[in-house]
């Protein structure tokens, strides 16, 4: 590489910009970790150094919150939402791409249009529907509206474009029915796509706040996001406790991403090469 001034300036600008963006992304996480070790007053004062209140904050969090129950609630909702969303959306994406027709294409476009409707506009009709089905204050009400995800269907359809049609032909000659081709060939071949979609859906479901806030009304059914929110909006919020809760709530998504990041990146680039 030549060391002329323009190249150096370009490198400084690039690294400076990337560094700034990285810092802005990581700072809230650092603040959360440091905050978990400080008292509420220190946090309000803006202290950004490790403190000595970690044990107290953890003890208070476990006193105020039924931790196993809320984590179980969140896990239940997230696992069902993730598995069902992946199953339904991948089938739909595969179907839209493989069995093309003008009518299905119109249906697909109509489905994509739903991405433009803000959730706020859907809340009340959804709430009324769930009410009529007697599902208010149940985890089914949280999961049901999330499984038909237009974005994930779109993602699977786009990825299916890279699925070699000759594999499908070979499977047909080998005697597989369409559902067997999907199950035994498509799913394993597209596993990186599934991994990327898994991370996206898992994080969305775990962090889901607005809809559970509306349909989950009793403390027995509330998820971790709702509990942290209620701690933060108390009359005298203990921010140290809130930071501990936030940190613990972040751990599952961090773990999932840590173990699946390679597949996530591969999935974003395309499963089939």
């Amino acid at each position: 590489m030549r060391n002329n001034p323009a190249t150096i300036a370009s490198a400084v600008f690039t690294y400076g910009f990337v560094g700034l963006m990285a810092f802005l992304s990581v700072f809230p996480f650092i603040w959360m970790v440091l905050g978990a070790t400080n008292s509420s007053i220190d946090i309000i004062k803006g202290r950004l150094m490790p403190g000595e209140a970690l044990a107290t904050n953890i003890a208070n969090f476990f006193t105020l919150v039924n931790v196993p129950l809320v984590f179980w609630n969140s896990a239940k909702v997230t696992i069902f939402a993730t598995v069902l969303t992946l199953a339904v959306s991948s089938l739909a994406g595969y179907g839209f791409e493989i069995f093309r027709s003008r009518r299905r294409e119109n249906l697909y476009r109509a489905m994509l249009l739903t991405l433009m409707i803000p959730f706020a506009a859907l809340m009340i009709p959804l709430f009324i529907m769930m009410g009529k089905m007697g599902l208010i204050n149940t985890h089914i009400a949280v999961v049901l509206p999330t499984i038909g995800s237009a974005f994930i269907v779109f993602y699977f359809r786009q990825s299916t474009k890279a699925f070699p049609s000759e594999l499908r032909d070979a499977a047909k000659v080998d005697g597989l029915k369409e559902w067997q081709i999907f199950l035994y060939i498509y799913v394993p071949v597209m596993r990186s796509t599934y991994a990327a979609a898994f991370i996206i859906v898992f994080m969305t479901a775990w962090n889901n706040y607005l809809w559970p806030l509306i349909v989950l009304q009793s403390n027995e059914t509330k998820t971790i996001t709702l509990v942290i929110s209620s701690l933060a909006s108390a009359y005298y919020p203990d921010y140290g406790v809130v930071m501990v809760g936030t940190f613990l709530a972040t751990l599952p998504t961090l773990t999932v991403f840590f173990f699946m990041q390679r597949q996530f990146v591969q999935g974003m680039l395309g499963s089939v090469k």
Binding site: E166, D169, A170, V173, G175, L176, V189, R191
Partner: peptide, 20 residues
């Protein structure tokens, strides 16, 4: 008749081997 019941086997241009 279904492809698998015609008594044929096919070799494809791109091999079409199941990668997994």
């Amino acid at each position: 008749v279904d492809p698998s019941k015609r008594g044929i086997a096919m070799v494809f241009q791109s091999y079409a081997l199941y990668p997994h």
